[in-house]
Design a protein around this nucleic acid. Sequence first.
DNA 1: AATGAATGAGACTTCATTCAT
DNA 2: AATGAATGAAGTCTCATTCAT
Lengths: 195, 195, 195, 195
Amino acid sequence: MKDTRNQILDAAKRVITQKGFHGSTMEDIAKAAGVAKGTSYLYFKSKIELYLAVMEREFDYITSCFEEIIKSRIPVLKKIEGIISFFIEYMKENRDFVFSLMYEPPLIKMNKDVIHKRYRNKIDNIRHKFIEVLEEGIRRGDIIKEDPEVLADVIFGAIVRPVIQFVIRKKTGDIDSLKFKIMNILTKGIVRKGG
Amino acid sequence: MKDTRNQILDAAKRVITQKGFHGSTMEDIAKAAGVAKGTSYLYFKSKIELYLAVMEREFDYITSCFEEIIKSRIPVLKKIEGIISFFIEYMKENRDFVFSLMYEPPLIKMNKDVIHKRYRNKIDNIRHKFIEVLEEGIRRGDIIKEDPEVLADVIFGAIVRPVIQFVIRKKTGDIDSLKFKIMNILTKGIVRKGG
Amino acid sequence: MKDTRNQILDAAKRVITQKGFHGSTMEDIAKAAGVAKGTSYLYFKSKIELYLAVMEREFDYITSCFEEIIKSRIPVLKKIEGIISFFIEYMKENRDFVFSLMYEPPLIKMNKDVIHKRYRNKIDNIRHKFIEVLEEGIRRGDIIKEDPEVLADVIFGAIVRPVIQFVIRKKTGDIDSLKFKIMNILTKGIVRKGG
Amino acid sequence: MKDTRNQILDAAKRVITQKGFHGSTMEDIAKAAGVAKGTSYLYFKSKIELYLAVMEREFDYITSCFEEIIKSRIPVLKKIEGIISFFIEYMKENRDFVFSLMYEPPLIKMNKDVIHKRYRNKIDNIRHKFIEVLEEGIRRGDIIKEDPEVLADVIFGAIVRPVIQFVIRKKTGDIDSLKFKIMNILTKGIVRKGG
DNA sequence: AATGAATGAGACTTCATTCAT
DNA sequence: AATGAATGAAGTCTCATTCAT
């Protein structure tokens, strides 16, 4: 059996995903975790801290997956492919969570900057590591010579949006072929060359 | 002088941008609009309806700008360039609003699907028109032969993310050169070709 | 009809007198005032502020009565007699209030110094005026030459305690003769002189 | 080493003195006593009972000191002097305690009369013994012929208030001379005689 | 005797909404 | 059309108390 703290975190992720941050009460979450209201406060100072803890745990998981891919000794393009694959898998399993808690975080009264600082570091960290991978790719001659930051953001955007659109629309089409379509566009560029 | 309804909408946009949806009270908004609390209810049935009205007005504005670009008789790539330019301009002027109300909409207790349906149509509409433009480009041989939906999402993602990152980080660099960098990557692809 | 603010103050004095500060809920007080819970918060920022407002209003009343007596152009001893009379009257009408809110103020979590500063001024003010009266009495040769501060405190203590004891014990005896007994002891001293 | 029960009582006196009754949690007190929360409940049925135990122990101490003085075979006036001395000493050492727990007992939800009955006996007992001393003094011709109850209360009040005022104001003056000033006023009376 | 994790009743406070003026 | 005083449902958080170990 998991320890109480993790039970509460899991319940919070589930409940807030379903009802949103402001739509979920501490009572809801506690009940879902099978504990009493007060128990949540033994482990988390406040509702917002509980929420932040859920988010941090999630970001830590995502971060570690990204790092694994980025550190591996494979060509740059394979790494990008790997990221797409991971992101597709993660989205398939966490569709509602992403929309409720990540793509659309609640506007909590707490100074938003405070909240963001807690993630920004983690996100920035990942982004920076990806930029380094691209710089290496540029040096090796695998990637075009272009501002690596912009490259990183373009690639991330080009990955995230189609995957999210795919999952939102719950198309019955083949999600795996999506990876190749994205890679195709990214590698060749959108312009039709030659005859 | 603007009519009362628009005064309230403007105030709502300003206040909610600053304090977030749950951080703003109807009192706050009414005061900022220079009217009494009760007056807001003469024009909007509820707080959530006021919020949705703000959003709809904004989406209508964005939609009309996109349509203008998309309808114009210029080459596909020029249209994409135009979209980037517009998006950059919009973000420069609406940075905080985008982060508060669009990029991070509040998780209101109201069934989220209800909310999304109100925008989904507008967003879908735009997306669909953009897809048509790309299909036309593919037919003409200007754009590579690839799933037009994926193409549309990749391009949107590749535009939105770097612009947002640029604005978030408030880099002092030249934001206008950003457009050319994005276009460069999108048109050539990320892979270094030739020699 | 009294205005709402005063209705709430009166209800608060009554309810807190009966149940104590921590024993009274805002709901209790509001109901006793014939208003809704939220209404109290339109007039007082918090429960503790409401409590402090009750106390201040009371101290202001007592202060003004004391001032009236002290300012009047009568001999010092008559002033002391007047104070005893006032105190007896006040205690007869406010017995429970004095015990609940003044003689035994609640130990609120708020820094007690903060609370006391709100009264201390008023109390100090009265005490100081009384000291001045005694100084005048000493100069005139009506009062014995002794530290006027100690004199003031001795006299106040010698008045307050017997009156409170009398009221606590609800003796059926003649409360008015109490004044003369106190005056007798104070003026003659406790030692039997002469033969 | 003291037994656990007394450790808890001591901690309770210290903590409640500092934070007040409602500001102190059982956790606070237990921690200060170096025991676990549950342990307190092995020795005291409830928080209020713990509080009452602290008070009773204190009153017992004060009572025994008073009795010692009152029983001793010295003249009445010497006894009064002794009481002043004791009270000054006690106040110097227990200033904060007196203000937190005695001068301003918490308004606990429990029926206040219940609480008071626990002390009333002890206080009444002391008061009564003092009254007897005065009656004896009156019979012997040392004390003026006056209602002994009023005499007792006047004297107590005339002692307690100046000492408390002295301690509150933390005057740097000579606290020992205070005793003689009080005695002077009490014995001679406040009226300037002769000449 | 001792522990401390868990409980859950209960209180303060907020604020969207109403409605008499 | 406009006001703003009043409402009261609802939520967060605290903490005395219990009890299995």
